[in-house]
Design a protein around this nucleic acid. Structure first.
Length: 196
DNA sequence: CGGCCGATTATCT
DNA sequence: GATAATCGGCCGG
């Protein structure tokens, strides 16, 4: 039975929330229409000590959202052209977030594909943090959105429990210049599927 | 399918 | 002034 994930789901450590989000349904309501997909890949970032986390430099205008209460969207701009979506975790005061890296299309696939004119290959149009943000028509304007309030148009619903045997754990990607042990921290979770 | 590379700008040093 | 939680086009096998 579908239900929006409650605040308590998010007010836990990111490395605990990240794998729990696999199998859940990310929903974006646009003009009353639902666009959604099953979360298939996540990464955890937590604390000023985590040198891969944006909060490594402390509290700044950009990281303010991450220092807030869990259950809000942290959407930031990178590489001069991409927006990435995260779910903030932990109680207010502790900077932590889970990066949503891939989706399996569920509702509104036609519209989501339309949002990605240059979908190169056919199989990989929704597996990538910037790709899914584009498909869901998100950008910086949704930064800070309360994921626990359906009126916000952006939330996550619980899905079917995921078997541990279907989850791959590994190191986070795109952080080559980050020193050990953070670079190799096993904080990336991927749901096995035909698409990956 | 896999590797290399250019794009493009907010954020922090 | 350097770097970035990436992507897509182009090339070779």
């Amino acid at each position: 039975m579908p239900g929006i994930l409650p605040r308590e789901f998010y007010t836990r450590p990111a490395p605990e929330v990240a794998p729990a989000l696999l199998g859940c349904r990310l929903v974006r309501v646009l003009d009353g229409v639902r666009l959604s997909g099953i979360i298939a890949e996540t990464e955890a970032y937590q604390g000023e000590e985590d040198l891969a986390c944006h909060a490594r430099s402390g509290r700044t205008p950009r990281t303010e959202t991450m220092y807030g209460e869990g259950g809000h969207a942290y959407i930031y701009f990178t590489y001069g052209m991409h927006w990435l979506l995260n779910a903030v975790t932990c109680p207010a005061g502790t900077p932590a977030a889970v990066l949503i890296r891939a989706l399996l299309p569920l509702e509104g696939e036609e519209l989501m594909r339309a949002n990605r004119p240059n979908q190169c290959g056919t199989a990989s149009w929704l597996n990538g943090p910037a790709k899914l943000v584009q498909a869901l028509a998100l950008d910086g304007r949704q930064n800070g959105t309360d994921l626990c309030d359906p009126a916000g148009g952006l939330f996550i619903e619980n899905g079917c429990p995921v078997e541990l045997a279907r989850v791959r754990v590994g190191a986070r990607v795109g952080i080559q210049s980050v020193p050990e042990p953070w670079r190799s921290m096993p904080w990336r979770w991927t749901l096995f599927s035909e698409l990956f």
